[in-house]
Design a protein around this nucleic acid. Structure first.
Lengths: 162, 162
DNA sequence: TATTGTTATACTCTATAACTATA
DNA sequence: TATAGTTATAGAGTATAACAATA
């Protein structure tokens, strides 16, 4: 399932946001997959290029769990797009260094992402697109700033073994 | 993880839609949980009230799989909010009949949903809210109308047993 | 003691397959 | 043959726990 369908009476905000975000996500995934990237790999690549960052820092930027970060960096390393390098200041931490090939791929993936976003907005004029982005940005500064704790589906701590 | 965080340079459409839809979803879930409903139960209840509908019809409206529908109706029945009744025209099908209690709960849950949507838009003026809904609606009629097939994550058909 | 990164794994969600009964 | 509903379960995604190395 993707999202709640609109009531016959009113297309509601829940449906609109769920639907548009889900479809955009699938389109982004499909477009990036053509060059062998996931959205997470793209995200990490781009932010690792900006400056020297550790896995934890990149995980925070991408809002990923650190364990999810591990598999993402594994994938980037296996594809030859990035490398783990010891931090010179903290021997626990690993700097994610983007390779030359990784930098090229990041440039391509950024163009792909920009294109997907342009296409998503193709039903709107340039001005309307800016209006939409502006209004959504203000939503993220209001009641929709932070998620509320999950009510029932919250995963309970695992039974402690020994 | 919830969604890709914004690049420092530009808050992009992917982040904005993912973030707002995710936060709204958690808020809706939390609000409906206070009266013991999930978003799916609310959706089924409301549409079953409108007219006589079978599980399959309600599943289509809510964009759920029919197996997901089964557990949703189970929950509604156990809560005494709806009942399965044989269709008079198709003995395979079940009409989902909302009980008196179910109708009361549906009225409350609809007020809750409306309130959550109002609160979500509280950072905007009434006019801006309408503009946002209008622009999102037009997005769903453009390139963001239908999801594209999942590229790699597509679930493969299960190994056939015997 | 707290934190980075790692492995292993358990939990949730949801779709797939197979089935029964009808059409 | 195809469809409505059901059960059981596989697969994907992701968070939790525990751990080693280091702060």
């Amino acid at each position: 399932m993707t999202a709640m369908a609109p009531s016959r009476t009113e297309p509601d905000l829940s449906f609109l946001l769920d639907h548009t975000s889900h479809v955009l996500r699938t389109r982004m995934a499909a477009a990036l997959a053509e060059i062998g990237l996931t959205a997470r790999m793209h995200c990490v690549l781009v932010h690792a290029l900006e400056e020297e960052r550790t896995q934890i820092q990149l995980a925070e930027i991408g809002d990923m769990d650190k364990t999810t970060m591990v598999v993402t960096v594994d994938a980037l390393e296996q594809a030859g797009l990035a490398e783990r390098r010891p931090s010179s200041t903290d021997r626990r931490a690993r700097i994610i260094a983007v390779t030359e090939k990784g930098a090229e791929v990041a440039a391509r993936s950024q163009r792909i992402a920009d294109r997907v976003h342009r296409e998503a907005l193709d039903a709107l004029s340039a001005e309307e697109g800016k209006t939409l982005v502006g209004l959504l940005t203000r939503l993220t500064e209001g009641h929709l700033a932070t998620p509320v704790e999950a009510p029932q589906g919250a995963r309970r701590a695992r039974q402690r073994i020994r």
